[in-house]
Design a protein around this nucleic acid. Structure first.
Lengths: 222, 222
DNA sequence: AACCTTAATTAGGATATGCTAATATTATAC
DNA sequence: GTATAATATTAGCATATCCTAATTAAGGTT
């Protein structure tokens, strides 16, 4: 069985690899709030495991092997199931779930995971709209685009909010930007400036910087 | 914050102290399936903590300080809440809960604990009939006696089953010896021999050794 | 092509937890 | 009251994970 630490590295590498195709030492260190040498050590260990979880090229970085990706998807499945459970069963808000899910994900037996999934009706989306891998690690293909990509006058349904900081999630919830809400872009300031959007839920308008609108995703199926 | 390891030692010391008034090195080592020297080391560390969790006398053993007892009761509270949750919400049987609760108890935030307790209606008894300490670590006083102490012809309600091994719990469940079931002692063999008991739940009779009947408790309020 | 910057690695150490083998202490038995 | 058995501790070592400081490698500049 993998240690929690290894599971956390797997998650980090998975995310970085899916953002930029490659996970280098500093990026992992940043993502995990850990010093660089700790990452180097761990990458070597993970590459030396039987079977190897990553392939590692010094001075370049790491990529998940198929075995590593399978494990990473399992951890992500549990994390997202836990977040869903915390919101749906225990009444957490979407900004409260992350830290607790992070701990629970390392303390879950296969039985617990199955029971939680069944209790929730085998959910496919967590409280932030992230896909929940199924038992086999399969993710649905979705078509969505960042809110930033809409032009003024366009509107769409929020399918995912990939904000990492709880404060941002709380703020978005407060101004009515929740999952499945329809938003309309009223104005898009030039020079990479903010977007002014209207929430159908709250009925109010708000200006949002692009660091945020890049992380709010809209159904592209229209 | 305490590590899981320290939390486990606290639990072990608490149990041993309540069984025999004192927790010595070997007993702790046995209870935790760990080598003796590991225990000695840990006891020293726990006695040196600020505030000390135990008082430790070399070659004698350990006792919880008030601070240690408070922490131990908190861990036990979480453990028993988790067991209750696993049974009531996730449909575990009483023999399946222990290992999972053992891991979850170390991964629970204060918020999680409060929410679970509230969801369950602040339960006071876990699936084995063990008392759940309240938020302040207080335990109700109960009057109960081991099934062994009944004489032939007496009957009573099962209030607690302190069997540690899951196989025993499973067996007891199968023959209808569950919490709150009324049992009658039909026969009590001499020379510390087995008791033959009748379960009102299953309607069947079974002979049980005293290692088991010592761990089944009956309401003494009658 | 030598130089500099940035990023990554190695060197050396710390902490928490476990182990086995060797030693010391306490308790028991004559 | 000494010898022995049972129990506990110390010594020495291992692993997983983290750290800081020093060194090395890679990539871009002149």
């Amino acid at each position: 069985m993998l240690t929690s630490s290894v599971e956390n590295y797997l998650k980090a590498i998975y995310y970085l690899q899916h953002e930029s195709g490659w996970a280098n030492t500093s990026a992992i260190a940043d993502h995990m709030t850990v010093a660089n040498p700790s990452v180097t050590m761990m990458l070597k260990r993970m590459a030396a495991m039987q079977p190897p979880l990553i392939s590692y090229t010094p001075y370049e970085g790491a990529r998940l092997t198929p075995a590593g990706e399978k494990q990473a998807l399992e951890v992500i499945r549990v994390h997202r199931l836990m977040e869903t459970f915390l919101v749906r069963v225990l009444g957490y808000t979407w900004d409260e779930v992350h830290a607790d899910a992070d701990r629970l994900e390392h303390a879950s037996s296969p039985l617990l995971i199955e029971r939680i999934s069944a209790l929730l009706g085998d959910p496919v989306r967590d409280p932030h709209g992230e896909d929940i891998p199924d038992r086999n690690g399969l993710l649905p293909n979705r078509s969505e685009l960042p809110l930033t990509n809409l032009i003024a006058g366009q509107s769409g349904r929020i399918t995912r909010v990939a904000a990492d900081r709880p404060e941002i999630l709380r703020y978005l919830g407060e101004i009515g930007l929740n999952l499945d809400v329809t938003v309309e872009v009223l104005e898009k300031a030039p020079f990479e400036g903010p977007l002014t959007v209207h929430s159908s839920e709250s009925g109010s308008d708000h200006a949002l910087g692009r660091e945020i609108t890049n992380r709010i995703f809209i159904d592209a199926a229209h």
